[in-house]
Computed example of a mutant assay.
Amino acid sequence: MATKSIRRVTACVVALALPLAAQAYPGNAASKEASTAAAHAGMAMGAADLKMAHAHLQHVVNCLVGPSGDGYDAQAENPCKGMGQGAIADAKSDAARQSRLQEAAMEARKGVKAATVDEAHASAQKVMSSLQAVQGPAT
């Protein structure tokens, strides 16, 4: 019980802090989208049930791949709407960053299909790690 509470508090702190990090690079769509995706990965990590974890992981996918990307679900919310074409597409000038974003998207798609909340939380953690590695402006 204490572990779940700690996980939720940590996820909430991360979810609140990452959008602030994106503001340091206001002209960079990929950074904004990646930061928003990371916030939703944090929300998925703290989700109490599988349905909510799936929803937030789908938000991650939508932010990373954009409306024309693999796994985009138009029926789900796109919290990155209006920011760009998806973090992966918007990071095209930085191959290393784009590769990390693709890894995060692949893991988020896996999490959307997770059968248990623990599996979804594990995927969300991996997504968060990948996205934290790409914070900052694209070159």
Rank of each mutant, 00 (worst) to 15 (best):
K4I: 04
D90L: 13
S35R: 03
D49T: 07
T10E: 01
G42S: 08
S93N: 13
E119W: 12
H59C: 08
V117F: 02
A55W: 03
A17L: 11
Q85E: 12
A89Y: 08
I88E: 00
V60S: 01
H121I: 12
K113I: 08
Q23S: 09
D90H: 15
K110E: 06
A124K: 02
D94F: 08
E103Q: 15
Y25L: 05
Y72D: 00
Y25W: 12
Y25G: 05
A91P: 13
G46D: 01
G66T: 08
A15L: 02
Q23C: 13
R100M: 02
V127P: 00
R8T: 08
P137S: 12
A48G: 09
M128A: 07
A22D: 03
L131R: 05
Q125H: 07
C12K: 07
V9K: 07
A30Y: 00
V9Q: 01
I6F: 06
E119D: 14
K92N: 05
L101F: 02
M128I: 05
A47C: 10
M52S: 15
V61T: 11
S68F: 10
L101P: 02
A24H: 12
A74V: 14
C12N: 07
E119S: 15
A96G: 11
A91H: 06
P19D: 03
A17G: 13
A38E: 03
G136C: 14
D94Y: 11
A89M: 12
